[in-house]
């Protein structure tokens, strides 16, 4: 076992745990967005940034940093709240996140985070990019306006379903989640129509057709359940 401190609480952790796992085991809340049980952590969204006091107050993503003996972690402070809120505001400013108009209104992780972190408005100018909706798939749709590029769909498709349909195309703010070689989703030759990407998506970017907002609640626990049930070699 490894001994560390999180928000001045002594924590005993398994050596392979991340700081996030240790914090959760102790009941300390750290906000996350790109993290999802059942998928490998990538540290992409930076909302789980924590401060390591004895690493010169360095900021590290809790989801992708392994525990170490003697770590003195700050998981919640005014500085961290302000940093996380800034990251969140940048996410909102980057694309067209219009809650009132969204199929995930009321059960969206991005919307919940705004509430949790006290974001009452976005201080950055909105980019208002012109982005498409791909509704070519018979069962599902992808609305790039609502995508935060967390990559949960990409990982669910690759790591759990093994189809590798989704990928990141382009770079920076122009990155889009696209199927195969960029053809419309409905023409994908690798998609198994399993819907795991839809249930992995934290926002309304991936959605099921023919369902109203109230029915659009996602089963985020699905991927963890599937991976846990899978027989191990």
């Amino acid at each position: 076992m490894v001994n560390l401190r999180i928000d001045d609480t002594p924590v005993r952790a398994e050596p392979h745990w991340t700081i996030l796992t240790a914090a959760r085991a102790t009941g300390i809340r750290i906000p996350t967005l790109c993290d999802l049980d059942g998928l490998r952590p990538v540290g992409a969204c930076r909302l789980c940034l924590v401060e390591i006091r004895n690493w010169n107050s360095r900021l590290v993503p809790a989801c992708a940093t392994q525990v170490q003996e003697g770590l003195d972690v700050v998981a919640n402070s005014d500085r961290l709240i302000s940093l996380r809120r800034t990251i969140l505001e940048l996410l909102f400013a980057e694309r067209n996140h219009i809650c009132a108009f969204c199929v995930s209104n009321g059960h969206c992780e991005l919307q919940d985070l705004a509430t949790e972190l006290g974001m009452d408005h976005v201080t950055f100018p909105y980019r208002f990019p012109a982005l498409a909706v791909d509704a070519s798939h018979p069962k599902f749709g992808i609305d790039h306006n609502r995508c935060v590029l967390c990559g949960r769909c990409v990982r669910a498709c690759a790591e759990v379903e093994g189809a590798f349909t989704w990928g990141f195309a382009g770079r920076g703010v122009f990155t889009l989640i696209e199927a195969d070689l960029g053809a419309p989703w409905g023409q994908s030759t690798t998609c198994t129509e399993c819907g795991k990407c839809v249930h992995a998506c934290p926002t309304g970017a991936l959605f099921e057709k023919g369902k109203i907002t109230a029915e659009q609640e996602k089963r985020h626990a699905l991927l963890a359940e599937v991976t846990q049930r899978r027989p191990r070699a």
Binding site: V154, F168, A169, R171, A179, D180, L181, G182
Partner: peptide, 25 residues
């Protein structure tokens, strides 16, 4: 061209989505 991308994916055993990811990056 897209046909060549598909052929590279097939030849190397890389998912098409990852070929596109590299080409567009």
């Amino acid at each position: 061209p897209v046909e060549a991308q598909a052929a590279v994916a097939k030849a190397l055993g890389v998912p098409p989505s990852q070929v596109r990811g590299v080409i567009t990056f």
